[in-house]
Each structure stands twice: as structure tokens, then as C-alpha cells.
């Protein structure tokens, strides 16, 4: 995560190039009508990405602002600009955010959809010390019960029970 923003941008472009190349390669298996739109589009994507890379590396920053519609800096990033000094430690927080999604996903697969919502919410409150563990459990229970009533009782969703379910049958 210590690589520069400049290099990160290039990395993103390379990934995009690989993606578009993959699409073109897969299109070879399709009939002429099935690839009529995706294939030229992927080629267009490659062209766009190459231009973007060229400008990014060799052009002046002013040229990057290609829009005919003038783009003023949006009003919102004021807050982001203030956060800039903290950027150095921000990659830790970013990793934590990816981890958070991973944990919720894993919980969902292991315990099922609704228990995962309960565990995740209660856990999140506790880890971030949002409130005491008793309260965390109560809040999470209320949320889970609401989700159950809405999605399962009222909307007849068939809940997914998770990989652990067979152990309890």
C-alpha cells in the first residue's frame, strides 16, 4: 500500500487492459452476433485505457481534464482534503474496511444470512466500543428481529441457513 498514487493509477490501468483483453479472448468462442457488441466495446475500452495511461504518464495535469463540461471541484471533497494529512495511516483503515466485508461474507456463509447480521452488528458495536456489550447484543437482536419480521415473516424470504446448518439437523 506504500506505492505512490501515480503508480496505483498505472496499476489500475494495467488491470483494466488485462480485463478487456480477457473479454476479447473470450469473445472468440461466440458466434458473430453474440460478439457483435462486446468485442468492439472491449477494443474501445483498451483504446480508452491506453489514452488515459498516456495522458497520466506523459501529459500535463491540465490536459487530463478533458470534459467539455467544466468540472469544478465538487463541494464535498472539502472534508476529504482536510483528511489528507492523515492519509499515511489511512491504508490501515482501508485494510480494515476490506476485512470487515470479508468477515461479514464469511459469517454469512458459515452461519446463514440472519445470524450473520446479528453476529456482525453485535461484534461491530463491541469492537468499535460504540456501546457496552450488553447494549450491543440488545441492538443487534432488535435489528435481527426486525429483519426476520420484514424479510421472512412478511416477505416470505426463504432464509439461507449456512454451512453449519447440517450439523444441527
Amino acid at each position: 500500500m506504500m506505492i505512490s498514487r501515480h503508480a496505483q493509477e498505472n496499476l489500475a490501468s494495467v488491470l483494466l487492459l488485462a480485463f478487456f483483453a480477457g473479454v476479447i479472448w473470450m469473445c472468440q468462442d461466440f458466434g458473430p452476433r453474440a460478439r457483435m457488441i462486446p468485442q468492439p466495446l472491449a477494443i474501445f475500452g483498451i483504446v480508452l485505457t491506453l489514452i488515459q495511461m498516456a495522458w497520466h504518464n506523459f501529459g500535463s495535469p491540465a490536459e487530463l481534464r478533458m470534459d467539455m463540461i467544466s468540472v469544478q471541484a465538487p463541494d464535498i471533497p472539502v472534508a476529504e482534503a482536510q483528511a489528507a494529512p492523515e492519509k499515511k495511516s489511512s491504508w490501515r483503515r482501508e485494510a480494515a474496511a476490506y476485512g470487515m466485508i470479508g468477515v461479514l461474507l464469511a459469517l454469512t456463509f458459515i452461519t446463514g444470512v440472519l445470524p450473520a447480521a446479528f453476529l456482525f452488528t453485535a461484534g461491530y458495536f463491541m469492537v468499535t466500543r460504540y456501546c457496552s456489550w450488553q447494549r450491543s447484543l440488545i441492538y443487534a437482536a432488535v435489528l435481527t428481529a426486525s429483519l426476520y419480521l420484514l424479510f421472512v415473516a412478511a416477505l416470505q424470504m426463504q432464509p439461507y441457513h449456512g454451512l453449519l446448518a447440517p450439523l444441527f439437523q
Binding site: 485505457t49 478533458m66 470534459d67
Partner: peptide, 23 residues
């Protein structure tokens, strides 16, 4: 064109990605 915040190239690339995902 309205949403190409800063770079028309990136904006168009994003739409191309979206179209391909829809396929």
C-alpha cells in the same frame, strides 16, 4: 458525459465496464 468527474476517458471506461458486466 455529465458524470465523467475529471476525466472523460475514465468516465467512458467505467460505462464500457458496466456494459460488459451486463452481458
Amino acid at each position: 458525459a455529465t458524470f465523467s468527474e475529471g476525466s472523460l476517458m475514465k468516465g467512458l471506461t467505467a460505462s464500457v465496464l458496466g456494459v460488459l458486466v451486463a452481458f
